[in-house]
Amino acid sequence: MTAEIIGNLPFIVSVLMIMVGLSALLFKKNMIKMAVGLSVMGSGINIFLVATCYRFGSIAPIFTNAPLSEASKAAVEMALPVPQSLTLTSIVISLAVTALMLSLAMLAYRHSGTLDSEKSRRLKG
């Protein structure tokens, strides 16, 4: 039981982070806090992606000069490279989204003098 929990810990953490991010997006009216929530949610999904590619005892997937395992003289197991590259891409994208969101929050503050998205709202209906 405990082994299962420890083995699945990365997934539990990622779900918790997604939940934290979503709750910030749902309940926080401050635009900066919403951006933080989105960023946390993105990190949670990145953890999920990285966790799917990990194998126990594996090394980074670099084939050049890869070490051989001592017991079987075969190559050591490597982590899957594809989700890692997905994570890298998604980090870059979430950086762009966070930066854009923060700059829009800053502009909204300049216009309305408040970061509260409900007070500065003008569009409805």
């Binding site: 997006l25 635009m31 919403m34 989105l38 989204v97 854009l100 969101m101 829009l104 929050a105 502009l107 909204a108 216009h111 998205s117 500065s120 709202r121 003008r122 569009l123």
Partner: peptide, 9 residues
């Protein structure tokens, strides 16, 4: 700006 923020989030 408001519309952009809403769409982005």
């Amino acid at each position: 700006v408001e519309a952009g923020f809403k769409y982005l989030s």
